[in-house]
Nucleic acid binder design. Sequence first.
DNA 1: ATCTTGCTGTACCTCGGGTGCAGTTATGCC
DNA 2: GGCATAACTGCACCCGAGGTACAGCAAGAT
Lengths: 207, 207
Amino acid sequence: MLETADRRRTDTRERLLEAAERAVVAKGFAATSIDELIVDVGITKSGFFYHFKDKNALARALMLRYLAQDRDVLDGIFTRGDELHDDPLHGFLVGLKLFAEALADLPEHHPGCLAASFCYQDQLFDQDIRDMNAESILVWRRRFRARFDLIAEIYPPKEKIDLEALADMAASLVEGALILGRALKDATILPRQVLLYRDFVRAIFQP
Amino acid sequence: MLETADRRRTDTRERLLEAAERAVVAKGFAATSIDELIVDVGITKSGFFYHFKDKNALARALMLRYLAQDRDVLDGIFTRGDELHDDPLHGFLVGLKLFAEALADLPEHHPGCLAASFCYQDQLFDQDIRDMNAESILVWRRRFRARFDLIAEIYPPKEKIDLEALADMAASLVEGALILGRALKDATILPRQVLLYRDFVRAIFQP
DNA sequence: ATCTTGCTGTACCTCGGGTGCAGTTATGCC
DNA sequence: GGCATAACTGCACCCGAGGTACAGCAAGAT
């Protein structure tokens, strides 16, 4: 019957997740209807419920996907930073520079963060999804905290500093700058905040 | 018939807004039902639609209320800071200290920001509400930017610095720290971020 | 006495999230 | 070739939430 791509079986679930992430970041989970997702990927409602038993299962799958992507992106950028510089401080500063550049080059106008999007609607979700959301933040805290401990051994900061707060500052700034960027429709806010954070880190540790 | 408070007429609208703000910050606008609000304040659905023609009108009223409160709180804290110190830099630093203390003393465990809550669901709202949301961010930018310009005249920073980004950093950090605080159920994150921001501002301008 | 404000009550419509289940078709495996 | 399985479609139906449209009523203000 000349069907170009019937029985595409393998990627329908993935395409649902992609459509869902776009929609959820754009307008929130509650405002994202199953109907619009199935129109997007060209299946029926029954098809959706074949892949996800309910909307909560969709949310869980989105979070899992997001956690993995987030980890990969951070890993990629900061290992490249370290490859370009042996020293833990300067490798980190290069990593932040690369991060800012990557953010500035994002094709989307006003990107968003799934964790933040879920955060203000978290009563909609099961406890395990809220736990995953917390974990996505803790990943950042642990990553940056470990690096600062390493740096502080070599470059002890002049003044006592709350290193945990400094680590959390990275996630706070990114989440907050995404909000500002969306509200003001200004894609430059996020990379500039990252560069400012970099200035702060350098000022703290550099002798 | 011994009605304790029938015909309370005057404050029903206000009580609706209070209930709505609590619910919206807790679980998002879309997940906040009119039914729960009317149960909260003890009126009927018709009563709700007497006060607000639809949910969008409720959102608009919430934003207006929020803008006024936000302005008053910031005004109060930073004018007190300036009363305690003549110098624009040190008055500002005192203000930030007061701000951090006020945030640490908040009774609610995980407060939230209406602007952030609306931000990730903004497709639900009319354009004018999105504009008000942007305005609530610009209030912060203008306030802090003006102060930094003032400070920079007296204490020119050693290195070139993006003062607009430094101003936006305040709102970014607060919005982001609220998200982290909610996700991790840790009320100390927000005040600690504000204190860190204060350290950064001092490091930039102090000779 | 009547007007206005601040509601209540009833009835009804639509959309979105589900549930339940029977049927269909391509593919892979024996 | 036969058969199981994966990946759906189609249909029928339920519920809750956002509205719409009015008619009515009761307490104060004038």
